[in-house]
Amino acid sequence: MTPIWSGLAIGAVYALVAIGYNIVYVAYTTFNFAHAQLMMFGVFVTYWATVVADLPIWLTFLACGAAVGLIALIEEFIAIRPVKGAHAHLVTTLGAATLLDGITRLIWGDQVLKVPPVIGSSSTITLLGGRISIVELVLIIAIIVITGLITLYSRRSLTGLALLAMAEDRDAALLRGINVKRLALGAFVFAGVLAGITGPLVGPKTFAVATLGSALALKGFVAVAIGGFGSMPGALIGGFVVGLVESLSGRWLGSDFPTIMVFVVLLLILLLKPTGLFGSTRERVV
């Protein structure tokens, strides 16, 4: 049971990345390569707030949300807004991701920095026959709650419906009086803030390291591929699946295998069910 708990905990982090991808996907029908880097930045800000500045809990969350939200805002203006089309965005957001990686490395260096728990503690408890630390448990519960809230919001609130309308047909939404640009920007910044405020939850599990971004980016993408583009519950389940595959293959096959097995899962999903478990096919229109 212990590897299952740890798989779910790391899976929660991947699910969070996947949710970030999905929010931007719904708002722009494009892919923000740099989202995982935003999350990494949140983790580093948490490190700074807790270890260096020793801020109180509420201020730590505030600092993380504000800092990463601001970076997301800047990213939208320099890397998303000036270009059109998912293909061009791949290049520019990859650029943003690389840039954030580089900046992180310049500021904090290459070593692995331990992030102390902000909520809960690193002491472990025994749950259903496996051991899990309090921070991990908090992380798993938080992700489930966040996914639930976002799903509810997107289906019930007017803003959420407007977002869905926008994802379906941007021009039609525009004609319906939806301020597409502002709404999309709002969603983008929200994704950034979310990446920021979850930093204190994620940090103790992943630690702060400059290679975190690219590792999370790929696992998050696999989570989206499993769950289907745009589906929030799909992202959650996809994230947990990736986490479990990783932790169980590490347990049974050896430490070289987790990433390779996740890659195999990705290839299988793309071959067998390219739309993901919860995605739907859209027919091409001439």
Partner: peptide
């Protein structure tokens, strides 16, 4: 500085 430079370059070149 490679990553910083590449990052800026990709954004500028892409746009």
């Amino acid at each position: 500085y490679a990553q910083v430079i590449y990052g800026v370059f990709l954004i500028v070149a892409g746009t």
